[in-house]
C-alpha cells in the first residue's frame, strides 16, 4: 500500500478557497499533486451528488473548501455547504463508505499556507484509509 497515491477532487469556491490555492501557487508553497481542483463560484453550489459522483468514479477523497464563517461572498453558501457535508457523511456511513473520504474546510483568500497544509494532511489521511473500493469498477 506504500505506493498508493490517492486521487482527490477538490471543489474550491471562487472567492476564498480558490484564491487561497492561487496564493499557495504565487507563494510557491509545495503540496502533493494528488489534488485536482474544480472551481465553483460558491461552496454552496456543491451538490452532494457531485461528491457521490466523484467517489463513484473512483476518487479516493473529496475536499470542499469555502470561505470562513461570516466571510462568504454570498452571505451563507459556506454554511449550507458545511451542513450538506455533515449530512452527506451520515449517508456515506450507511453506504459503507468511510466518511473521512469527504472533508470540508474553511480556507480564506489569504490562507495559501493553510490550503497547502490541508492538502498535505488530507492526502496523508486518505493514504491511511487506503484506496476507494469503488475505484476501477467503472
Amino acid at each position: 500500500m506504500s505506493d498508493f497515491e490517492p486521487n482527490i477532487v477538490a471543489f474550491l469556491c471562487n472567492w476564498c478557497a480558490y484564491a487561497g490555492a492561487d496564493l499557495a501557487g504565487t507563494s510557491r508553497l509545495i503540496y502533493p499533486a494528488n489534488v485536482k481542483p474544480i472551481r465553483v463560484m460558491c461552496s454552496g453550489r456543491v451538490d452532494p451528488v457531485f461528491v457521490l459522483e466523484a467517489l463513484k468514479k473512483g476518487a479516493d477523497g473529496v475536499l470542499i473548501a469555502g470561505c470562513h464563517p461570516g466571510d462568504c461572498h454570498y452571505q451563507s453558501g459556506n454554511y449550507k455547504a458545511n451542513r450538506r457535508v455533515i449530512l452527506l457523511k451520515e449517508l456515506l456511513q450507511q453506504l459503507n463508505i468511510n466518511p473521512r473520504r469527504v472533508r470540508f474546510e474553511y480556507v480564506s483568500a489569504s490562507e495559501g499556507q493553510k490550503f497547502a497544509n490541508v492538502v498535505k494532511e488530507f492526502v496523508e489521511e486518505i493514504k491511511e484509509i487506503g484506496p476507494n473500493p469503488l475505484r476501477g469498477e467503472q
Binding site: V40, R45, V46, F50, H73, Y74, G77, K80, R84
Partner: peptide, 26 residues
C-alpha cells in the same frame, strides 16, 4: 448573485446555473 446554492438545493434539477450547470460540472 450567481452563487448556485439554490441549484445544489433543488431536488428535481430544475434549477441550474449558467456556466455551472450540473452536467457541466459533472
Amino acid at each position: 448573485k450567481g452563487c448556485g446554492s439554490c441549484v445544489a438545493a433543488c431536488p428535481s434539477g430544475a434549477m441550474q446555473q449558467k456556466g455551472f450547470k450540473d452536467d457541466q460540472i459533472l
